[in-house]
Structures are given as structure tokens and as C-alpha cells.
């Protein structure tokens, strides 16, 4: 429980600082937008308020995180061992690899190769990585059959022009 709370403090401090920077960026960008008539109906007026609020609320969040021992926790996280444990932990690795596979599927395959081929490769890679089924060839069969079903079902039954 103690561990979880301390991590929350670090999360709050870190996300609070990011929000302050992000809020200031929004205000800066908004104030650079053209004023057509008066400032209060200018395109940048409302975004500048939103940015300022995000920065202020982020500041409050960072302050709470700081008071709750966020600095100490961040120092601990930044120590080599904890950082290494986090990076090589099974959960972190799995999420990073799953996101990477999605990025490759969406940015690399879709629109460049046929939907069925792209989807079959993506699904096979996922099934094999997650060890979803015991036999590797079963992973391939499930992936290929699913890709065909999704493609033809959406194309012919639901009338969607597929990729």
C-alpha cells in the first residue's frame, strides 16, 4: 500500500510538471493566433484560457505530488536498479511490444499491402508473442481465417469499402 501511494506521488509530480509545460505551450500558441475583431472573440481567446487552467491545475497537482514525497520517489525511480527493473519488467516489455506491433500494422502495413495480408501478419505475430495457442501453425490458421472473415464480412455484409 505504502509503495503504491508513493508511486502515485511521483506520478502526480511528473504529470503535473508535464501539464504545466503543456498548458504554457497552449497559451503561447493561442496568443499567437490572429485577432480578427476584438480579443474576446478571437480564435485564441478560449484556448488561452483553457491552457492557463491546465497549467494552473497541473501546478496544483505537481505541488500535491511534491508534498507527498514525489521528489524522493522520482529519485528512487531514477536510480539505475529501479529504472532497469521497470524497463525489463514483463508488463512494461509486453505493453511496449504490443504497441510497437500496432504501430507497424497501422503505419507500416495498412494502405501499403492488402488488408488481409496485413491483418494476418499482425494477428500471427500477436498470437505467437502472447503464446495465445500452443501450436504455432494453429496461430497462423486462426490469423488467416480471421483476416478473411473480417474483410469479407465488412465488405459484403456491412457494405464497407475496405482498405
Amino acid at each position: 500500500m505504502q509503495d503504491k501511494k508513493e508511486r502515485n506521488a511521483a506520478k502526480d509530480l511528473f504529470s503535473g510538471i508535464v501539464l504545466v509545460i503543456f498548458g504554457i505551450y497552449i497559451v503561447h500558441e493561442a496568443l499567437n493566433l490572429k485577432i480578427y475583431n476584438t480579443f474576446i472573440d478571437a480564435p485564441g481567446f478560449f484556448p488561452s484560457i483553457v491552457g492557463a487552467i491546465i497549467a494552473v491545475l497541473g501546478g496544483i497537482l505537481a505541488f500535491i505530488g511534491f508534498k507527498l514525497g514525489g521528489i524522493r520517489e522520482i529519485k528512487e525511480i531514477c536510480s539505475f536498479k529501479v529504472f532497469k527493473d521497470f524497463i525489463v519488467s514483463e508488463n512494461t516489455t509486453r505493453v511496449i511490444i504490443l504497441i510497437a506491433m500496432m504501430v507497424i500494422y497501422i503505419w507500416g502495413f495498412l494502405g501499403r499491402i492488402h488488408f488481409i495480408a496485413a491483418t494476418a501478419i499482425y494477428l500471427t505475430a500477436n498470437f505467437l508473442y502472447l503464446k495465445a495457442v500452443e501450436k504455432w501453425w494453429l496461430s497462423v490458421i486462426i490469423a488467416v481465417v480471421t483476416s478473411f472473415i473480417v474483410y469479407y464480412a465488412f465488405k459484403f455484409i456491412f457494405g464497407i469499402t475496405m482498405l
Partner: peptide, 10 residues
């Protein structure tokens, strides 16, 4: 583990 990747496709 089979279902979730298929959901990504959907």
C-alpha cells in the same frame, strides 16, 4: 489472448 488482438483489428 486470442480475442484481444482480434479486437484491435475490429
Amino acid at each position: 489472448k486470442v480475442l484481444m488482438p482480434i479486437i484491435v483489428v475490429l
